[in-house]
Each structure stands twice: as C-alpha cells, then as structure tokens.
Amino acid sequence: MNRRTLARIGVLATQTLLVLVIIVALTFMVFSAWPADPALLACGRPCTPDRLESARVFLGYDQPWYTQVWNYLTGIVAGRTFGEGAGAIHCDAPCLGYSFRLGAPVTSLIASRAPVTASLAIGAAVLWLLGGVLAGMVSALRRGTFADRGIMALTVVGVSAPSYLLGLLGILVFGFTLDMVPVANYVPFSTSPIDWAWHLVLPWTVLAFINAAVYARLVRGHMLENLGLDYVRMARSLGLTERTVISRQVLPNVLTPVIPLVALDLGALLGGAVITERVFSMPGVGSLLMDAVGQTDLPVIVGVTVFAAAIVILANLVADILATVLDPRI
C-alpha cells in the first residue's frame, strides 16, 4: 500500500464519519415524527396525563427536536444521564439511547446481541461466498450443460424466495421431518463451539442460499466475460494449463469486484438479519429491532437503525478499501 492508497483511505474515512453524523441526525429526526408517543411505554397503567408528562420529561421528549438531536449526538460521544440524583439512570458513551421497556442502555442491548448476528452473518457469508463462487465457476465452465442450467434454475429460486418461507421450509424439512438439525435458539461459541455451529447450520444455509444465488450469477457473468478477454488467450498461448489459467489468472479478476460486494452484503446483514433471526428464534440485533417495532420501543428502534446505518457505512468503507487494495488500477 503506497502513500496514495493511504491518502485515499484517509479521505474515505473522513467522509464516512461525516455521513455517519448526518445519518444519526436524520434517523433521529425521522423517528421523532413516529405516530405513537414513545413516552406511553414508560407511563404504566393506568396512564394519567401528569404521569405521561413526567415520563416525557424524564426521557427528554419534552425538548424541541433540535435539542433532542443534539442530546442524542452528544450522548453518543459523552454518554447521558436520564433523571437526577440517586434515581437517575446512566447511559455510558457511546449512548444510543435507553430502553425504558427493557431497562437497559440500547448500546448494551446491541452489544449483547451483536455476537449472535455476527455469527449468523459471517458464517453465512463464508458459506455463500464459497457456494456462490463455486456454483458460478462450475456454471461458467460448464456453460450450457445440465449442471449450468440446474444451477441457474436454483439461483432463480434463491433470488426470488423470501427468507421467511425458506426458513420455515428448512425448519419443516430438516428440523421436524428429517430431524437432522435443531430448529431454534443460539448457543454462544464460548459455551460450546460444536453446539454453536450445530444450531447455526440451518440459518446459515438459508441465508447463504439466498445470497449465493446472486453471487453465482455474478461470478458466472464475470467468469464468462473474463474467459473471453485477451489476457486469457495470452495466458493460454504461453502454455499455461487451464487449471492455472482459471485459478491464477481468471479467478483474481472475477473475485476483485465480488469481494467488496461481500463486504456490502455482510454489512447489511450485520445490521440485523431481521427475518432469519426471528424464524430461527435467534436473539440477534434484527430480532431486537423487530420486537422493538412491535412494542414501539423508540429508543431501541432509533439505536438499532443508527447502528445498522453505521455498519452499512463502515461496510461501504471496507468495500472501498478492499477495492483499492485488490485492484492496483484504482
């Protein structure tokens, strides 16, 4: 990596930070227009007007929106305190809000669930990258054969099937009927690596299947395009075996545009594989969000949204950096 590359990465990082701040402000403003009063959750039953008002004050919802945005932004940097004195609730930096319903800072809620989502997303990404690249390569190298057509037909299924349906189908077939894999729950890696993987096999497969479809098509397209390029002809003319041509010459060119894409897709998943987590009862960031939406737990909704946006932006940054590092022309 030379000085130019480093400079480019520096510029990208600065831009990223700026975008992140804007996203935080925007997210907060958008959710401030939420139809339901978030203070209702903290009001209890029966909810009287004065109790509602005191909940608003406590949570800071009585402030004008720009003050709320400012408090939120400073909270991320310096932490926040809700209420006063011994009864106050502290939310340490980076504070993404405090869930009154769950009685916990949103940051710690996300932190406790991120490993689940990360396990799910990263495992699936590895699987779909391997599967997608392999399928795409086979498809391209065996173009027009039964294998090619079969793979392409499968990708159509993968691209169009909703994950909810695939997840349930997987649970039904491999969980209940064949009884091969567990259908629910997450076991932390630290508890038992084997159980961890064992519980994740099915969700990995479902997520990987859906994403691999896109990659298989992409890899097939890039592969066919590259196989027709002059450098391949040149390599063959030098007496390189086809195996060497594919693995040493074509594959790097095919993967160079694909790998940054994995970073992007992975980033999107790390913000919460909402449906998959729900179907497989995985306590990840996505299921946290889904639950919060159902309960109008606004701080959690805002916090997870900001977190997901940050992850996606970081993923973009990583993708850009990967592209810069992988392709000497950029």
Partner: peptide
C-alpha cells in the same frame, strides 16, 4: 415508593391514584 420514581415508571400503578 420507588414506583413513583420517573426512572421506574411503566408498571401497574392503580395505587398511585
């Protein structure tokens, strides 16, 4: 008494009235 604290509201509070 602690059910009156703003930080701890959200429960059943029929007694408060």
């Amino acid at each position: 008494e602690r059910t009156y604290a703003p930080a701890l509201s959200g429960g059943l509070t029929y007694h408060r009235a």
